[in-house]
Design a binder for these strands. Structure first.
Lengths: 149, 149
DNA sequence: GAAAAATCCTTGACGTATCAAAGATTGATA
DNA sequence: TATCAATCTTTGATACGTCAAGGATTTTTC
């Protein structure tokens, strides 16, 4: 995504680049929890007990990845997994005590981090940016027809 | 990066999300070339012969990854690698004929794709967006002091 | 009610990124 | 010039993501 001859190309590249920078910096303040792992825990903070499928959809990561993350989080005592009583296919996930306190602290740090990324942005600017992101996303989603051949 | 209780947090999440969408869509139109692989080739389109180190810095990916990508591209006949005559440590990389024609076509497709992402953006809006990205990047880079303990 | 389809989770194969350590070569220093 | 430090590349270990295939359990459908 680095070289592009058009103005717009450069702009999108800037966007991608910012994203990479954010991700890298972010990883420095998460105590060894990857972003995805944090997302999973954070979701469980909101809805205390949900299925893996639900989690997968909310975090927007492949099923396989979710299974592996949850297994890891389970052996580390952050979450518990039990089969649903009503449907034996599904596994219900919930935070352990330790997981709960851990994610609460992590989320605060993350929020603080995110706040600082937009340091100096007025409410108006934030609004504009949000809309632009929305427009780009829409463009991207309505675009597959343009896919090569 | 999905859950966050603050306004700014949500906004950054939108940014990350857009990025993911872009990456996914983009991969649909690159003939099996990963983005990084394309970036490497595109760089060689600009400067016909540069060292791996140079490439690594421009594409902003780990050394190890560059080595592996280039090896792959070499066995596929897209590039050539020769040791520098003046410094035996460095390996100079250049496009083959096939690589050149291939990347030229791919880059066109990519540019077209990028153009479409910003469909409907006025020059003014693009400028604003560019500046915002710059500001966020600056915030991110000047921030590590805030890193948790 | 039994066969077929759908759903949820897991596993395996694979691509790619990172870091850390090691090889090879060059440059600097004493 | 012999040694030590720096530089470039490679390799190995590890992490994470995807897709595809498989097992177990519903649900549908006839």
């Amino acid at each position: 995504m680095s070289i592009s001859c058009t103005e717009k190309g450069r702009l999108i590249y800037a966007l991608v680049s910012v994203n990479k920078t954010i991700a890298q910096k972010f990883d420095l303040c998460t105590d060894g929890f990857s972003q995805t792992r944090m997302d999973l825990l954070a979701q469980l903070e909101v809805d205390t007990t949900i299925s893996q499928k639900e989690l997968q959809q909310r975090v927007n990561v492949d099923n396989a990845a979710v299974t592996r993350h949850l297994k890891h989080l389970e052996t580390n005592g952050m979450i518990e997994r039990v089969r649903s009583a009503t449907d034996n296919r599904v596994i219900l996930v919930s935070l352990t005590q330790e997981g709960a306190t851990r994610i609460a602290r992590l989320r605060e740090q993350k929020d603080e981090f995110l706040e600082q990324l937009l340091e100096g942005f007025t409410a108006d600017e934030q609004h504009q940016l949000a809309q632009m992101m929305q427009r780009i996303e829409t463009n991207a989603l309505t675009l597959p027809k343009t896919t090569v051949n």
